[in-house]
């Protein structure tokens, strides 16, 4: 089973929920898909044993064959190619690797070369098979790195995907392949606002989902009322407590110290497994 953890709003506790859930289960693979700021390994401390570069393909123009007709540039929706008299310019950072320029080129002048955009790393910690992705600084496309991570999914394991915040492409790429999505929120107007956006996304994707309310006790009851009205299950509430906050600030997963939480997370997992079976 693949469970994704998403939120809409940043800083609600996605990684906290994802890591504590992972450490409460057996046979777990954990994949941090927040490739712009992968920080789950602060909780796991997995020693990185393997690394792989992630590359994308960009066009390379054979100037012997090219007759500067400009069809590649006209085709490119991202303006990654410019054709001026006797020169073709490629702007690698704008290219989305669709290969369309190669298809429309009448001279067959376009071949491909690899361009590195990031890397993925692997390690094992406390029995958890851990992966994360790192997008190179200055790169704008997180998707190729997330796709490379998804190729590592081991379906025989309980897979947990820690999604980036927001509601755009990287979130959809992460959540889209999961059997169930946990949306983590906080009971504040900000949490509610962004939760609604995230709910729209997972509903659109047609993925079963439920909500975990983190820092329960602060703010107001509007998140719960919203969930009731929308018939969204509230899977768990994590009380706003100094103990949990202190462990978090030391980079310690709270199930390691407050061990009764492991049972809560196991129950949560079983509940989700039942729901997915339906």
């Amino acid at each position: 089973m693949i469970i994704s953890i998403a939120s809409g709003k940043g800083g609600t506790g996605k990684t906290t929920v994802a890591t504590n859930l992972a450490l409460s289960l057996e046979k777990v693979q954990f994949i941090d898909c927040d490739v712009e700021e992968p920080n789950a390994n602060i909780f796991f401390n997995a020693e990185i044993k393997e690394q792989e570069d992630v590359t994308v393909e960009i066009p390379k123009v054979d100037t012997e064959k090219c007759d500067y007709c400009g069809k590649c540039s006209e085709f490119c929706a991202y303006n990654a190619l410019a054709v001026v008299p006797s020169k073709v310019l490629v702007f690698p950072e704008l290219c989305h690797s669709c290969r369309g320029c190669g298809l429309v080129c009448p001279q067959n002048a376009i071949s491909w070369k690899e361009r590195p955009v990031g890397k993925i790393e692997h390690g094992v910690s406390n029995g958890v098979d851990f992966y994360h992705g790192l997008l190179n600084v200055g790169e704008i496309q997180a998707i190729p790195v997330i796709k490379a991570l998804k190729k590592k999914i081991d379906k025989d394991k309980n897979v947990i995907l820690d999604a980036p915040p927001g509601t755009s492409c990287p979130v959809i790429e992460t959540v889209g392949c999961s059997d169930y999505c946990i949306l983590v929120t906080e009971p504040t107007p900000f949490g509610l606002h962004d939760l609604k956006l995230a709910v729209d996304v997972v509903r659109h994707l047609g993925i079963p989902f439920g909500v975990i309310i983190n820092r329960d006790g602060i703010g107001n009851k509007k998140v719960e009322l919203y969930c009731q009205k929308e018939k969204i299950p509230v899977l768990m509430k994590i009380l706003h407590s100094e103990e949990i906050a202190r462990l978090y600030s030391d980079g310690i997963p709270f199930v390691n110290e407050l061990t009764s939480w492991r049972d809560e997370f196991k129950k949560l997992f079983n509940q989700i497994a039942e729901e997915v079976k339906k």
Binding site: G70, S73, Y78, N79, A80, A82, V83, V84, P85, L89, F91, L94
Partner: peptide, 12 residues
Amino acid sequence: GGAGIQTAQTIA
């Protein structure tokens, strides 16, 4: 995106 590139080609 790429407005400058496209505009430069048009002008060329």
